[in-house]
Design a protein around this nucleic acid. Structure first.
Length: 804
DNA sequence: AGCACGCCGACT
DNA sequence: GTCGGCGTGCTC
């Protein structure tokens, strides 16, 4: 093939199409679609993806491809196709779709440099001379600060310098030097006999290879094992007895750990009934979507594991998606324990290099199973036998930035192509999925019993308003303190959950009610104990906590709301004898600290684990017998049509953390809205009734699953512009949609201003809209001039999870 | 997105 | 007369 169509790494409307390039002669056999290349683009060079090779091009002034990045394509034909589908489904740029499918380490970095063109350094202006003493190339970033751009430009005009564009690869393949023998063991043995006896170190090395019967060994290891130095090794290399090689090695984040090999557990009756149709689907290469609806502790994971075994037996591969936070060691252990080295793990706790390495294992087909968060759905397997999405209801499966895809949709798309099953597992399925299972679009598989036959822990709802009325002004109800004390005495553990979503510690004046807000965003600043700072979570603005109210000069200005730090302090006051582990973003920022804290708790080095949402999932500690939810209802006040659903899910999840083993558990839910149905029904573990009630509400308010949603968010520094653009969009939409489709707006967003930009939105609620994407594309096209030059942005989210 | 080109005002 | 502002349009 002589020509290649390339999608270039320039995320913009005008460049969102293929550009053709000539393939240099020597690469014409080599280059195939899915490979990354570096191509000249205007005056610079950019990375791009080859989507097609061909023998003809409509363009006549073609530039040649500058470089090939991959030797094997990083995108399979299926993924190339999937990228196309993603762009259409989410209205994102093609390049963004491709980049979303690969580990971040494979994204190119760009760097500008200057190259010396004149032979005589003295021609150059004096300040520039020192930079070119040693090298004829200098990074522009090194010079920019000291030398004004004007001066540099002058030199370029005089052709003493030229600008060069470098595309740098982040892909830091980790390598080691290995020493390889160049001769057979037999030859070495011969050599050993005749070797000069005074070369003792060299003899040691040769002997090491002979006695251990090895072909090669990493240099580092050799030096230690044979107790020798690099000098002796080099001498042997010079004699051509050994050779030195650079070898790619994987950073294995789990290398220092042994995983206890586990075997398949015996499935109970219910589990057997649930797994049978999945196994059928795997065996018969048939696409199906299963909703595995099983209460916490009903043994869903064992079903996953045994299904995967079948997939592997068939010589196929499996993807397992788990929510980011539940990718705890416990989860990894179960998969590694069963499948050992056949598993790759992809989650945010890994460094970008580690993620890249795990991805390479998948690409090279060295593993058959990948366990990972959302983006693992793009694992470059070519022989998929099954896709599992655990905790199907988790909102983290939806990406909240472009491309705004939902992993569930991608899973079903891929599974259709591979003719394999998708298993969606949850104790609290999304209304969408459960509704689909009722309509037989998904096949429902139920697990109603817990494996250990224990009933779910008893849940008590505590009305915090009552507590306040009876004079308890702390954040702990009397009952909770009582129960916590009880656990302390018995040596059992407790978990306390602070539901922080939709809740922040703002600063208010007690005298005049003034709340300190961000000057750039319409949202109150959050108090951070660290350095008495006030911080904006949306734009990063920081200011000092004032001593007096800026409005009325009163000294009664203080922060409200509760952070885990604050809870910890209070808790220590009430239960001074307790040992507490606090887990939130502050304490788990560092790599691996999350895990360390959990291990500590698991080894009973603490009595109470206190944390935010992140502790709600996947934890399984035998001695936890009490779970307390400090503030159950904070989410309910958010402008989010899923607020009740999320509250129900969260409460059900945490309740499942108590009493998973021998000891019976108990749950205390503190709330200011005890009568709310999502709290009431969660306390009775009544998903079915919750489903009924919530469905009724969704129907009445025209929300999913009865209607599909599309959310358009317009932003611009001037409010008048935002309003007028949003109005125009609404008008255009009204003209172009079906009668039963509802258009809401324009309205200001829940956060009406972020980073000095006003935000308005408009919501489309529809049942059938064949041409919606086309209509939306027309809108984007129409406003393109303003988007390009007037700092206007229009964001489109098809099927938004929230309205924020 | 970047970058060049080009057309206008305010300075040596 | 030149420097430098940023609107416009292109990138195989």
């Amino acid at each position: 093939m002589k020509y290649a169509s390339v999608i270039v790494d320039v995320p913009a409307k005008q460049t969102d199409r293929a550009f053709d390039y000539k393939i240099p002669e020597e690469w014409q056999e080599l280059l195939i679609p899915g490979m990354r290349v570096i191509v000249p683009f205007g005056p610079r060079k950019v990375q791009g993806f080859v989507i097609e090779t061909k023998d003809q091009s409509d363009w006549n002034r073609l530039k040649p491809i500058a470089e090939i990045v991959d030797l094997t394509p990083c995108l399979t034909p299926e993924l190339l196709e999937l990228g196309q589908w993603l762009t259409e489904k989410t209205l994102c740029f093609k390049i963004s779709a491709f980049q979303a499918m690969l580990p971040a380490a494979m994204k190119a970095k760009y760097e500008k440099g200057l190259r010396l063109l004149t032979d005589d350094l003295k021609n150059l202006t004096e300040i520039l001379q020192p930079y070119f003493q040693k090298n004829d190339q200098v990074k522009l970033t090194d010079i920019e600060q000291t030398v004004p751009l004007r001066i540099i430009q002058k030199e370029i005009e005089k052709s003493y310098l030229e600008v060069i564009y470098n595309v740098k690869q982040k892909t830091n393949k980790k390598t080691v030097k290995v020493i390889k023998r160049n001769q057979s063991i037999l030859q070495l043995t011969e050599l050993f006999k005749q070797f000069p006896a005074n070369a003792r170190k060299q003899l040691d090395i040769i002997n090491y290879f002979i006695s251990n019967q090895i072909n090669e060994i990493p240099l580092h290891d050799l030096l230690i094992e044979a107790n020798s130095s690099y000098a002796s090794v080099k001498a042997l290399i010079k004699k051509e007895i050994f050779v030195e090689e650079i070898k790619e090695v994987y950073r294995d984040p789990y290398q220092d750990r042994d995983f206890k090999k586990t075997n398949a557990l015996l499935l109970n009756n219910e589990q057997q009934q649930a797994i049978a149709p999945i196994l059928d689907s795997i065996r018969e290469t048939f696409h199906d979507v299963f909703l595995l609806y099983g209460v916490t502790g009903s043994g869903k994971t064992e079903i996953y594991l045994q299904s995967i075994e079948e997939v592997i037996r068939k010589g196929k591969e499996a993807i397992v998606l788990v929510p980011e936070i539940s990718l705890t060691p416990q989860m990894v252990n179960r998969f590694k324990g069963r499948f050992g080295a056949k598993v790759a793990v992809l989650h945010s706790g890994l460094s970008s290099g580690e993620k890249y390495d795990e991805w390479r294992k998948i690409q090279r087909k060295e593993v058959q199973v990948v366990v990972g968060a959302r983006s693992a759905i793009f694992a470059p397997f070519e022989n998929l036998g099954m896709i599992i999405i655990d905790e199907e209801h988790e909102s983290s499966y939806k990406q909240e930035e472009n491309p705004r895809y939902h992993a569930r949709d991608v899973a079903i798309y891929r599974a259709q192509i591979h003719k394999c099953p998708v298993v969606l597992g949850s104790a609290t399925p999304t209304l969408e999925s459960f509704a689909r299972s009722k309509k037989d679009v998904y096949k429902l598989l139920s697990l109603k019993e817990r494996v250990n036959k224990r009933s779910m822990p008893r849940v008590d709802i505590i009305d915090m308003r009552e507590e306040l009325r009876s004079g308890n002004r702390t954040m702990f109800s009397n009952v909770l303190i009582e129960k916590l004390t009880e656990r302390l005495e018995k040596g059992e553990q407790s978990v306390l959950l602070l539901n922080k979503r939709g809740y922040s510690s703002f600063v208010m004046c007690r005298d005049c009610g003034f709340v300190i807000q961000c000057p750039h965003c319409d949202i109150s600043l959050t108090y951070h104990r660290h350095g008495q700072q006030l911080k904006c979570h949306y734009c990063g603005h920081e200011e000092q906590m004032p001593n007096v109210c800026p409005e009325c000069q009163s000294e009664h200005i203080r922060f409200f709301g509760t952070g885990t730090q604050r809870v910890e302090e209070e808790l220590v006051k009430v239960l001074p004898q307790s040992r507490i582990i606090r887990m939130d973003v502050d304490t788990t920022g560092m790599k691996g600290s999350h895990e360390k804290l959990l291990t500590k708790f698991g080894q009973k080095e603490a009595d109470i684990l206190l944390g935010t949402q992140m502790i709600a999932k996947g934890l399984d500690f035998p001695d936890v017998t009490l779970v307390g939810v400090l503030t159950a209802d904070t989410m309910l006040n958010l402008p989010d049509f899923r607020a009740s659903e999320k509250t129900f899910q969260l409460l059900t999840q945490v309740s499942g953390r108590a009493g998973r083993h021998e000891l019976p558990g108990e749950v205390i839910i503190q709330t200011y809205a005890p009568e709310h149905y999502s709290i009431q029904l969660a306390s009775h573990y009544d998903y079915d009734l919750f489903f009924e009630r919530e469905m009724q509400l969704r129907k009445n308010h025209a929300y999913p699953p009865y209607y599909y949603l599309a959310l358009l968010t317009v932003s611009h520094p001037e409010i008048t512009k935002v309003v007028s653009v949003t109005e125009k969009i609404v008008q255009f939409l009204r003209w172009n949609v079906e009668n039963e489709t509802k258009i809401l707006g324009p309205v200001a967003c829940p956060i009406p201003r972020i980073k000095d930009r006003y935000r308005y939105q408009c919501m489309v609620k529809y049942k059938r809209e064949k041409n919606l994407n086309e209509t939306l594309r027309k809108i984007m096209e129409h406003f393109q001039p303003e988007i390009n030059s007037e700092d206007l942005t229009i964001a489109i989210d098809l099927s938004p999870n929230t309205m924020m």
